[in-house]
Amino acid sequence: MGRYIVKRVFLAVVTIWLVATITFFLMFMIPGGPFLAEKSPSPATLEALNRKYGLDQPVIVQYKNYMLNLLKGELGESIKQRGRTVGDIISRGFKVSARVGGISILVSVLIGVPLGCVAALNRGKWLDNLIMVVATFGIAVPSFVISTVLMLIFSIKLDLLPTYGLTSWQHYIMPVIALSFYPTAYISRLMRTSMLDVLGQDYMRTAKAKGLSQFKMLFKHALRNAILPVVTYLGPLIAYTLTGSFVVEKIFTIPGLGNEFISSITGRDYTMIMGTTIFLASLVIIMNLVVDIAYKIIDPRIKLK
């Protein structure tokens, strides 16, 4: 186990280096730059700015400098948001996004897993059909539609919930619903399929033949086997949801990290692009490692190599 983790961490470093390198060169292939705007600065100003941020040097030299800084753990300063470091912006945004995202994931699992189980246990009956229709709906409808419809109903018509910001618990309700709709639907479908598979297994018949109650059969014998696909899905889901959603954060005016991903690219904020990309990549890698270890704990047949 210890050796396995060391190996994975080493691989993670290599992966992050590759991601950083590819992103770095791709970024410079996109036309435009951070200082281009409708009213371009004078050539003299532009030159001074470029020199200040080291953008006048050849790309390969810039790459070398960036990587050396990265080794020291420095992500540099944002080019567009003057005076703020990239690390600072990410940590502030992440705190907000992770809170909203974390709640959403919790909600998705707590609703999706039981729904999938209920659907599987009632296979072919109206309850199963109902759950699956709702789940298909949840997968098909994009979050911006859900967000706007929620706003229309709960804020404008019923005047129950606030439309923007994150200052009280009521503020969390709509963004959390919007964010958890898709994963809830997806998890319930996954859960239903794997639960049906598990319920048909011979060891479930053995469990019944022992005289176990339906409840114990389901929660002890079936759930642990059926949850594996959901765990697989949760790894990347957690990474992507914790780092925020551009759409939902825009609509509910949440000062999260999701916003920074998109605005850094549209604004050619080179250091921010690198920072957010490396951050997301690291998170995905960490979550995948966590999932693999969780797998080993849930299913003893799995060997970590």
Binding site: Q201, D202, Y203, R205, T206, A207, K208, A209, K210, G211, L212, S213, Q214, K220, H221, R224, N225, I298, D299, P300, R301
Partner: peptide
């Protein structure tokens, strides 16, 4: 009833199945 049946199964009457490879729960 199912409840009464549960008290008998595995207690007064038990069964051995055909395929031992799949009849035990792999995660316990």
């Amino acid at each position: 009833t199912e409840k009464e049946m549960q008290k008998i199964r595995g207690n007064e009457v038990s069964i051995i199945f055909q395929d031992p490879m799949t009849s035990l729960n792999p995660v316990f």
